[in-house]
């Protein structure tokens, strides 16, 4: 297993590099579209101002040198400073923003996977049954309904009308644990609903396959109880493809947090990215793209590892 993880970690290195190149390229493209210095200096900026800013930011160096400098800095945790306030380091901005985003994404995955698995098992155990039909309609609706619409309806009833949860804002866990949970529950649910549907669909299908498999038949022929057939025999095997699906969904959820972050007024990575785009804050932009990319990579790694844990063939052969 250690070797398996080691191989995966090594495979991450070129991916990491690719993500760094993409982040950098996007920033360069943004720069090509409108001068960064111009956006710093404002409208009617003088040539002197632009020249000074370009010197300060090292924009006049050749591209490979700039990339190497940036990546070397990134390797030591230095992602430069924000263009809108040079006393603020990009790393500290990201450190401040990543907590809410990871809280929401993780929480949403917990909710989504738990609910999706429950639904998927019920559906997969008796495909075509009444419960399966109801759940399939529910999950088809959840896939079709945009998360932001569900989020805004939920926030209206659960938070504004009934006051169960906090309608917006983010409370740090260091300030109040219950406040933290109250503040991230709604955005997490908003983000989790499509996850529920996707996990349900995947698990239903792989559960159905697993239950039709020869080893389950063999287990039945040995008199193994139904609950054990489902939980011990079919589920671990059905989880293997499901974990891959969950991994994709985790990456997608990271990309989609900005919708719930905007709707629920949470200052996380998503809103940081949007603000950086709006203010053409190139350093913040490339830094946060890189970090989001790394988080996606880590998620993929975790998926690979849990894939290995679930699938003894992968675990033992590598």
């Amino acid at each position: 297993m250690a070797r398996y993880i080691g191989v995966r970690l090594l495979a991450m290195v070129p991916l990491l590099f690719a993500i760094a190149v993409i982040s950098f390229a996007i920033a360069v493209a943004m720069e090509a579209r409108g001068s960064i210095a111009g956006s710093v200096c404002g409208e009617g900026a003088t040539i002197e101002c632009i020249a000074q800013v370009e010197r300060q930011l090292g924009l006049d160096d050749p591209m490979p040198i700039r990339f190497l400098r940036w990546i070397a800095g990134a390797a030591t945790g230095d992602l430069g400073t924000s263009l809108t306030n040079e006393s603020v380091s990009v790393a500290s901005l990201i450190a401040d923003r990543i907590g809410p985003t990871l809280s929401i994404v993780t929480y949403s995955l917990v909710i989504g996977v738990a609910a999706g698995m429950a639904m998927g098992i019920v559906s997969g155990v008796r495909p075509g049954g009444a419960a399966d039909r109801v759940l399939s309609v529910v999950s088809a609706a959840l896939i079709a309904a945009p998360g932001f619409v569900l989020a805004m309806l939920l926030s209206w009833w659960l938070a504004v009308q009934w006051g169960w949860l906090s309608p917006a804002g983010y409370t740090r866990p260091s300030e109040s644990i219950t406040g933290w949970i109250r503040s991230i529950t709604l955005p997490a649910i908003g983000l989790a609903l499509p996850t529920v549907a996707l996990v349900q669909r995947q698990l239903r299908s792989s559960m159905t396959n697993a239950l039709q498999s020869r080893y389950v038949l063999a287990a039945r022929a040995r008199g193994i109880r139904r609950t054990s057939l489902i939980a011990e025999h079919a589920l671990p095997n059905a989880m293997i493809p499901t974990v891959t699906a969950i991994g994709f969904r985790a990456a997608a959820a990271l990309g989609l947090t900005f919708t719930v972050e905007v709707v629920f007024n949470i200052n996380g990575m998503g809103t940081l990215l949007i603000t950086a785009i709006q203010t053409r804050n190139v350093t913040v932009l490339q830094g946060s793209m890189l970090v989001v990319g790394i988080v996606v990579l880590v998620v993929n790694l975790l998926v690979d590892i849990s894939y290995g844990l679930l699938n003894p063939k992968v675990r033992l052969e590598s």
Binding site: V160, G163, P167, F264, N265
Partner: peptide
């Protein structure tokens, strides 16, 4: 002093006594 850019969410939070 807290920045709450989205107007609907801000109003909701205020309404909720936040």
């Amino acid at each position: 002093l807290e920045v709450a850019i989205d107007q609907v969410a801000r109003l909701d939070s205020f309404n909720a006594g936040q």
